[in-house]
């Protein structure tokens, strides 16, 4: 009976992990130097980063080759699935630390400061959010300029679109083409209505629309590869990547604007939470864009089949995770 059992693929010894360890050592030592204004710092970071990129490239290429040559059986595929879920869970917890921080400073920290005689800090100190704290008045905030009613309507439409795109994975799994199309069209309609409610010249709303739309195009790309339509897969994947890149462009524009108007990372606790949360999210979008781009190149190189394309699915999970984080950010950082 044991002959029928699959052998789990165990890779041969590899130098990539060691390279990765050296890379992180260089980067960590270099960053410690850099923040303390030692000259070698940037060079060490740059060389560590180069080693890291080389290592990641080589490592992932090895994995792609092993996968394409059919070394991974069903059990290995399952391991990959599990690991990606747990990895995303760790990312969720990373963001949770920052959401918790925002909650604390808004609802507890600022009141505690207010309970102390304000003059101790600054004569004009008021315990209200948004605040620069005792540093004084904020010159600008990211809050929307629309009415409360419109904002709530917008949020409802946004949540609807997010729910619809989530629900779309059901017809996707079950191979129901027209139902999937219907749901995705609904997503696009809801996104358009959302933009209508939120006003078009508010960048965060446009960014939200971009990410929601990218979730829809990505889901259609997934449908395409499942049905062996590589050409369509490539087009919709490219479209998703493009939406992500435009998102990053808009965010750069938004940051520039904020800095010009006087909202900076150094603008007290409001600036700290705003830039750290949106900044880490932006970093994750960047990583997601890179992942999806790699998938596009792999597809162009003929990788993936209708049955085997988990690497793409993992990247898609990651992209959806980044989307959800944005929706939450949009609600608690911008609107509320």
């Amino acid at each position: 009976m044991s002959q029928t059992l699959e052998k789990y693929f165990v890779p041969e010894p590899s130098t990539y992990p060691l390279m990765g360890a050296v890379a992180l050592l260089l980067m960590a030592a270099g960053a410690s130097f850099w923040v303390n204004h030692l000259e070698a710092g940037p060079w060490l970071v740059a060389s560590g980063f180069a080693v890291l990129i080389y290592m990641l490239f080589g490592w992932f290429r090895t994995v792609a080759r092993e996968s394409e040559s059919g070394k991974y059986g069903a059990q290995v595929s399952k391991s990959f699935r599990f690991s990606m879920m747990w990895f995303i869970f760790s990312e969720v917890m990373f963001f949770a630390a920052f959401f918790g921080t925002l909650f604390y400073v808004r609802h507890i920290g600022i009141h505690d400061l207010g309970s102390v005689d304000g003059n101790l800090f600054w004569p004009a100190f008021k315990a209200v959010w948004p605040t620069a704290g005792p540093l004084g008045e904020l010159e600008m905030t990211m809050a929307p300029t629309i009415t409360f009613g419109k904002a709530m309507l917008g949020l409802a439409l946004m949540v609807g679109a997010g729910a619809a795109v989530t629900y779309a994975h059901k017809p996707l799994e079950h191979g129901k083409r027209s139902q999937l199309q219907l749901v995705l069209v609904l997503v696009v309609v809801l996104v358009a209505l959302f933009l209508g409610a939120m006003s078009l010249d508010w960048l965060p709303a446009i960014n939200t629309a971009l990410l929601l739309a990218s979730a829809a195009t990505l889901t259609w790309a997934h449908w395409s590869i499942r049905n062996g339509n590589r050409a369509q897969f490539n087009i919709f994947l490219a479209l998703t990547i493009a939406l992500g890149v435009v998102f990053l462009g808009c965010q750069a524009e938004e940051y520039t604007h904020a800095y010009h108007e006087g909202l900076k990372l150094t603008s007290g606790i409001y600036g700290s939470t705003f830039f750290m949360m949106t900044g880490f999210h932006g970093l994750h979008v960047t990583i997601g864009v890179i992942m999806l781009t790699v998938m596009l190149f792999r597809s162009l190189a003929g990788h993936f089949s209708a049955e085997r394309h988990f690497a793409f699915e993992a990247a898609a999970w990651y992209w959806h995770f980044v989307d959800y984080v944005w929706l939450l950010l949009f609600i608690v950082v911008y609107v509320l």
Binding site: G109, G133, T266, G268
Partner: peptide
């Protein structure tokens, strides 16, 4: 090193956080 105020009351943060 980057001027945030998470744990700095002088910027509206809180060391207890």
């Amino acid at each position: 090193h980057f001027g945030t105020s998470f744990f700095n009351a002088a910027g509206g943060g809180d060391p207890v956080l």
